[in-house]
Simulated assay, not measured.
Amino acid sequence: MGFHEIRFPANLSFGSLGGPERRTEVVTLTNGHEERNSPWAQSRRRYDAGLGLRRLDDVEALIAFFEARRGRLHGFRWKDWADYRSAPASRPVTATDQLLGMGDGVQRAFALRKGYRSGAQVEWRAITKPVADTVMVALGADLMADGKGWALDATTGVIRFDTPPGKGAEVRAGFEFDVPVRFDTDLIQVSVASFRAGDLPRVPVVEIRA
């Protein structure tokens, strides 16, 4: 399976329907109680790219992108307009948005991640496809200059420091990011007459582990 480091046209993903999916296995016991288990450590996102189409030009752009990815064969980047930043929607991205880990004087590589908090619970999501020119890094509250003392692998979401952060130093980052996805179909059916009548084609897209 290949992955193309190209983003699905953001103007077409705007308006699409989608979000996180969990898989939970539920067994109901004879006494009415339940046992619940999840084989997935993280959620998986699904989208419908067809809902972002507004013009016939958009259909042509979609078909060209689909053909270049050869259907389900190659993955690509997707901008989830509902969740693409390290900061809440109400404020700008800053270098201290997300805690990546604590320095120990030895570790140099830190993976980008985003925390989802509700009450006492925090669910961490691995960010593997950051938008390179949006990433900011801080040690504690001190912003590190772009490319000075650290480097980003934008294809994996890993930051590597030239010198290991000192023991107890908070490694933080702020960023925008894409979701690694693929088409979840090898068939796109479009009727020009139906499209003009408002009947949009369904184009499922699913997150992949990249």
Rank of each mutant, 00 (worst) to 15 (best):
M1G: 06
F3L: 08
H4W: 10
I6A: 07
I6F: 04
P9D: 03
S16T: 15
G19P: 08
V26A: 12
N31V: 03
R36T: 02
S38Y: 05
W40F: 14
W40P: 00
R45I: 02
A49M: 03
A49C: 05
L51S: 04
L51M: 07
L53W: 13
L56K: 14
A61G: 06
A61N: 10
R70W: 13
G71D: 12
R72F: 09
L73M: 14
D83W: 13
P88Q: 09
A89G: 05
S90L: 10
P92T: 05
T96F: 06
T96P: 04
G103L: 15
Q107Y: 07
R108I: 15
R113C: 05
R117G: 07
A120E: 11
A120N: 08
V122D: 05
W124Y: 09
K129V: 02
V131T: 03
D133K: 11
G140Y: 07
L143A: 07
A145W: 05
A145T: 04
D146T: 04
W150D: 00
W150T: 00
L152M: 07
V158T: 13
V158C: 09
D162K: 10
D162A: 13
T163Y: 08
P164R: 06
A169F: 13
E170K: 11
V171Y: 09
V171M: 08
E176P: 03
E176T: 02
P180G: 05
F183Q: 00
T185M: 06
L187I: 15
V190T: 10
A193V: 15
A193Q: 12
A197F: 08
V203F: 02
V206R: 12
I208H: 04
